[in-house]
């Protein structure tokens, strides 16, 4: 299997107070293979989101190296980084605050397409937008409507359409279904799984909900206090967890 992203010994600390530093990610090495869904689980404060930001180079690591399709991206300048930006897209937790309330759905989905100048005419862009709406199962009449007119689940569909518009290689979902109701959550999870199969996406899925992870992930990384304590294929991890902390997490799921 080919690796899409490989990170070696990355460290990141943040300043807290005058002299103290908080080590958020401590010496983590990680590979994400092409076409797989890798889940990052752990409690809040364990460094999952920081690690995802480091991998996308939204923040710079203190130490270590990150390679995207074999090319080192850690030392690139912002300008050199640009072509890689298109290949990695994000879906956030709260769809209400990650969509611009003053833009209608067409403009929201068109923005990445126009920024990257994917199509040279407006007609072609619109065609692509219709195709995207169809992929995320939204109705055509949504185009002229605004985010506030949609329910939470529909808003999350809009965010997903925006993220996959430019055919990225990596989709990062940071707690993308945590704010949704069970029924809607099931719909969005099905959608993500379907899209992944159709588009051959690689997905980094961050969640603290282990039952969600067991449904969607091929491989699971368990994080605690900035370190990865166990990485294993989903089925194996849930059947025979090796690390003590993984067992503790699994035993905490209510109603199992």
């Amino acid at each position: 299997m080919q690796t899409l992203i490989s990170a070696r010994n990355i460290k990141k600390s943040f300043r807290i107070g005058r002299k103290k530093r908080f080590l958020a990610v401590n010496d983590v090495s990680l590979d994400i293979f092409k076409g797989e869904t890798l889940a990052l689980v752990g409690e809040s404060g364990s460094g999952k989101s920081t690690l995802a930001k480091l991998l996308m180079r939204l923040i710079k690591a203190d130490e270590g190296s990150i390679a995207f399709e074999g090319q080192e991206i850690e030392e690139l300048s912002e300008k050199e980084m640009l072509p890689f930006r298109r290949e990695m897209q994000l879906v956030f937790q709260d769809p209400a605050s990650s969509l611009d309330p003053r833009m209608n759905v067409r403009d929201i989905i068109a923005e990445p397409l126009e920024t990257w100048k994917v199509y040279d005419s407006r007609e072609k862009t619109d065609e692509r937008i219709m195709e995207l709406l169809d992929m995320v199962e939204l109705k055509e009449d949504s185009l002229k409507r605004y985010p506030r007119q949609f329910s939470g689940g529909q808003r999350q569909r809009i965010s997903i359409a925006r993220a996959i518009a430019v055919n990225p290689k990596l989709l990062v979902c940071d707690e993308s279904v945590s704010a949704l109701d069970v029924c809607v959550q099931a719909q969005i999870l099905n959608l993500l799984k379907k899209l992944k199969q159709e588009m051959d996406l690689t997905c980094l899925f961050i969640s603290h909900d282990l039952s969600v992870v067991s449904f969607i992930a091929d491989r699971v990384c368990v994080m605690k206090d900035g370190e990865i304590c166990e990485t294993a294929p989903g089925e194996k991890l849930f059947k025979s967890p090796e690390h003590e902390y993984t067992r503790y997490l699994l035993s905490s799921i209510p109603g199992q």
Binding site: C183, A186, S214
Partner: peptide, 16 residues
């Protein structure tokens, strides 16, 4: 049935 469970891996989740 729309809640995913650790242990069983359906292809897709049931939705209402």
């Amino acid at each position: 049935s729309s809640i995913p469970h650790v242990g069983d891996n359906p292809e897709f989740l049931h939705t209402i």
